[in-house]
Computed example of a mutant assay.
Amino acid sequence: MKTKMLILTALFAALTAVGAFIKIPFLYSAITLQFFFTALAGVLLGAKYGALSQLVYVALGLLGLPIFTSGGGFGYFLYPTCGFLIGLIPAAWVIGKLTAGSRSLWRILLASLAGLAVLYLVGLPYMAFILNVYIGKGLSTWAVFMAGMIPFLPGDMVKILVVGILSPKLLPHVKTQAAATENPS
């Protein structure tokens, strides 16, 4: 089972990379499918392997593979959107922890919403720091919200809804034991 989970972990790291290239450029960021695959990883693989899939994705990109929306490499730490990449890791963990293998639509939707909140809690302060301290833009808190969150929320809600619809259908095929090993009864 561990081999299967590691293969699925690698698969979701690759899918998140593919999701970076399905993009619509927008302000300091782009609308992508990265969070969609992150949420799916959390629901289908559980907290441990879902987060690991995103850690693999982020690590490979920071090591230089051009798998982020604008490339890759260690210099990506200076991009305003790097915090959102880092936030994918705890977002997947939270989603996996809150769903714990559940097929309930509402539980998946609420867990994905919580994961999205975590993503923004990591990404927005990072964006504000890079834009205001490193680049010296002097943006207000509202301007940072407008640049990094508000315009993206409608698309994020659609992604969460699709994850909620697909996950219950996919979970029986994944047959993960990650939730059972993380939360033994």
Rank of each mutant, 00 (worst) to 15 (best):
G71K: 04
L40S: 06
G61M: 01
G148K: 05
L27P: 03
L8P: 08
P151E: 09
Y57R: 07
F35Y: 15
L60D: 05
I31E: 01
G61K: 07
G42V: 09
L33V: 07
L119Q: 11
T3E: 09
K48E: 15
P66E: 08
V122H: 05
Y49W: 14
F37G: 09
Y76K: 11
Y79K: 14
L60R: 07
G19A: 03
A92I: 05
F74G: 11
G148T: 03
G72P: 11
L62V: 14
L27S: 12
S167G: 02
G115F: 02
L170T: 11
R103P: 01
G83N: 00
G73E: 11
A17D: 03
L109C: 05
T3R: 13
K159T: 07
V56G: 04
M157C: 07
L63Y: 13
G115W: 00
P151Q: 06
F37L: 09
W93N: 09
S185G: 09
W106S: 14
T16M: 03
G87I: 07
F74Y: 10
T99W: 05
D156W: 01
I130L: 10
I24W: 09
Q34N: 05
M149T: 01
L124Y: 01
S104Q: 12
N132H: 06
S167D: 02
G72Y: 04
V43R: 01
G87R: 00
F36T: 05
G46I: 05
F12A: 10
V174T: 02
A111M: 06
F68N: 08
T141Q: 08
G75C: 11
A178L: 05
L105D: 08
T3V: 15
L15I: 15
L166P: 03
Y28V: 10
S112H: 01
